[in-house]
Simulated scan of single mutants.
Amino acid sequence: MSTIALFGANGSIGSRILSEALRRGHQVTAVVRDPAKITTTHPNLTVATGDVLDPGSVAAVAKGKDVVVSAVGGGDGPGHIATIEPAAESLVAGLRTLGDAAPRLIAVGGAGSLRTPDGKQVWDTEGLPEFLLQIMHAHGDALDFYRTVSDVRWTNLSPAGTIAPGERTGSYRTATDDLVTDADGNSRISTEDYAVALLDEIEQPRHIGERFTIGY
């Protein structure tokens, strides 16, 4: 069993990570700006007020934990486009203050920087809306930052090209920087199976200091 501090626990991905972690018996502290938005109750769940953009707040909730998970990164709330990369910097700065006692960091990433079968990157796909491109590149900037960090144990988990709520199958395939596609060329994962993969990484670390991605 791990002790986990989870930022963004009330988002689409974060809420699935929360459910999966509790399902497996981990102790979770859900860190949110407004605790009233967490309606889940569970003996292993604690709700704390915190700000992912404040290194002091990060350090306070991370102290004594095994893992910090950042699920900020959507299009609104604390994961708004302009805060994705600053959140990465704040998380690392906060964890650095804890020195050798700092927990691992696992951050939800984006698919935009993944290589496609034709050798380009997902964000080079024609016809993508501007707001989505902005989010993709913000996640790319965050990943670029993480790759400069050697004194904090970090992992960045990029979803498949399409991620949406769906079935929890418990099955997925992994890659590092290449988009995972099926026989028909589709790249997809359910939010539930994304959470499965992230908790698997917590329980059996295989990607410390790197990005990996998943898909069916």
Rank of each mutant, 00 (worst) to 15 (best):
D76I: 10
G25K: 09
K65C: 06
L45G: 15
P159K: 11
K63R: 15
A107M: 10
A21E: 00
G185T: 09
P55M: 08
K63Y: 00
Q27M: 10
E203K: 13
L22T: 13
L18K: 12
H80D: 03
F131D: 15
H207T: 06
V52D: 00
R96P: 01
A111F: 02
G112M: 03
L95H: 10
V180M: 06
V149I: 13
A197P: 00
A71G: 02
E20R: 14
V28W: 07
R23D: 10
H139F: 02
V149D: 04
G140F: 01
A142T: 11
E126R: 11
D141A: 12
D76E: 04
T176Q: 12
S187D: 08
G74V: 06
S187I: 15
G64I: 04
G8H: 05
T29P: 00
T148G: 00
A107T: 12
G140A: 14
P78A: 09
L18T: 14
L198G: 11
A183N: 06
K65E: 11
E20S: 09
T83E: 01
V68E: 00
R211F: 01
D124Q: 15
Y172K: 12
T39V: 15
A107R: 13
R23G: 02
L45S: 10
G140D: 14
T125L: 10
Y194K: 07
T125N: 07
L198R: 07
A36D: 13
V32W: 09
W123T: 04
D34P: 03
V108N: 02
L128E: 13
S171Q: 13
S15L: 01
T155V: 08
R211Q: 15
V67F: 07
R153L: 09
R147L: 01
G110W: 05
S190R: 06
I214Y: 01
K37D: 07
S57M: 02
Y172T: 12
E89P: 00
R16C: 10
E201P: 05
Q121V: 15
G50R: 07
A160L: 05
L98A: 10
S150N: 15
R23E: 13
V92F: 03
V108E: 00
D141G: 06
I13N: 06
T116Q: 13
V31N: 09
T176I: 07
L95P: 03
W123L: 11
T191V: 13
A175I: 06
L53I: 08
E167N: 12
P78K: 05
G79Q: 07
S15I: 13
R206S: 09
G50S: 11
V122T: 14
K65P: 02
T97V: 07
I17F: 08
Y216P: 15
A197N: 13
I202Y: 06
H139N: 08
Y172P: 00
A101F: 00
I106V: 14
I13C: 06
A111Y: 08
A59G: 08
A102F: 02
F145W: 11
K65G: 02
I81D: 08
D124L: 01
L22I: 14
E201H: 09
L91E: 08
L157A: 08
I17R: 05
P43Q: 09
F212M: 13
A164Y: 14
V180C: 04
V149Y: 07
V69K: 04
